[in-house]
Design a protein around this nucleic acid. Structure first.
Lengths: 145, 145
DNA sequence: AATTTTTGTTTAGCTGGCTAAGTAAGTATA
DNA sequence: TATACTTACTTAGCCAGCTAAACAAAAATT
C-alpha cells in the first residue's frame, strides 16, 4: 500500500468523521452533565430497569470491566444504584434513581440535535444508502480475518 | 425524539461501526507492537521527518497535550527522538529512529489489510458514494451548532 | 460431600482522547 | 532595559476503551 493511500482511505475518513461526531456528542452531553457513553447505559435502563451488569455490557457493546467502572461513576453521580441479585450472589443489578430517570428527556433531545446536525443536507435516500453502506462495512469487519 | 430512535439513528450506527473498525485496527497493529493512533504520528514523520510537536498535533488532528504524551511513548519505545529546535527554544522537533523507519512497510501492510477487509463487497461506486456521504456528515458536524 | 470448573464482577494497569494549569522561551510594548 | 503579553510544550487529572488477574458465588464433576 502506498503511504498516501492511508490518509486517502475510507477507513481513515471514517475514523475522522467518527471522532468529530463523538466530540460533538460530548459537547452536547456536557451541557446536561454527562460524559459520552454514559447515556447509552441510561438508555438501556430506561427501557428495562434492573439489568445485570453483564446484560448492560452486552447491550452497550463494551467489556464487563468497562461497564463496571462506568456504572460505578453513574452511581457516584447518583444516577443509578447497584443491588445484589436475590437469587445469585454474583450478579449485580443496576437500578435508576429518580435523578437518572429525569435525564431521559434531555438525553433524547441531545441525540435528536446531534442526528439533525449530522444528517443535514442528506436526502432520505442518501441516509438510507449511508446506513446500508455502513452496515456492510460493519459486517465486513465482524467477519473479516 | 423517541427513545428507540437513538439506537436506530445513523449516528449510533456510525459510532458502532467506528468502534469495530478501531478495534480491528488495534488488533492488526498489535501484531507489530503499535497502539492505535501511534501509526498516525509515524505516518506524518515518514513524510516529513523533524516535524515540531504542534505541527504533528495539527496534522494528526489531536490536541498538543495528546501529541506530547504520545510522542513521549513513541520515544520510550525508541521509535522517535525529540530534539530542541535550534532557532526557537520552545519548539520540540521529532525525528525518526532507524527502528521507527523500519516500521513503515509493516504499517502500510496493516492499513492495506484493514481497508481490504472493511471495503469488501462494496463496488467502486459504492465506495465513492460512501466517501461522499461521510464527507457530508463531516462538513455538517464541523459547521453545525 | 468434597473438589474442580465456570461464571459474574471488580480492580489494576495500560492506552488514546480531552481540559486546565504551569513553565520557559520569544515577542511586543513602555 | 524592564515589563507585559503570547506562544510551544509539558504535566496533572479527568474520561472511555481495553486486557489480565483476582475474588467470590454458583454449577458441574468426582
Amino acid at each position: 500500500m502506498k503511504q498516501e493511500a492511508i490518509t486517502e482511505s475510507t477507513g481513515y475518513l471514517l475514523a475522522h468523521v467518527c471522532k468529530t461526531h463523538r466530540n460533538k456528542a460530548g459537547e452536547l452531553l456536557a451541557a446536561i452533565d454527562l460524559y459520552v457513553g454514559q447515556e447509552m447505559f441510561l438508555l438501556q435502563l430506561w427501557q428495562r430497569d434492573g439489568l445485570s451488569l453483564s446484560e448492560m455490557a452486552e447491550l452497550v457493546h463494551v467489556q464487563p470491566a468497562t461497564a463496571s467502572r462506568m456504572v460505578g461513576r453513574l452511581e457516584a453521580e447518583e444516577l443509578v444504584k447497584r443491588r445484589q441479585d436475590s437469587e445469585d450472589g454474583r450478579v449485580s443489578r443496576i437500578f435508576l434513581t429518580l435523578k437518572g430517570r429525569e435525564l431521559r428527556e434531555p438525553v433524547l433531545d441531545v441525540w435528536e440535535e446531534l442526528e439533525t446536525i449530522s444528517m443535514a443536507n442528506l436526502t432520505a435516500d442518501e441516509r438510507i444508502l449511508l446506513r446500508r453502506l455502513l452496515l456492510q462495512v460493519y459486517q465486513n469487519l465482524k467477519s473479516g480475518d
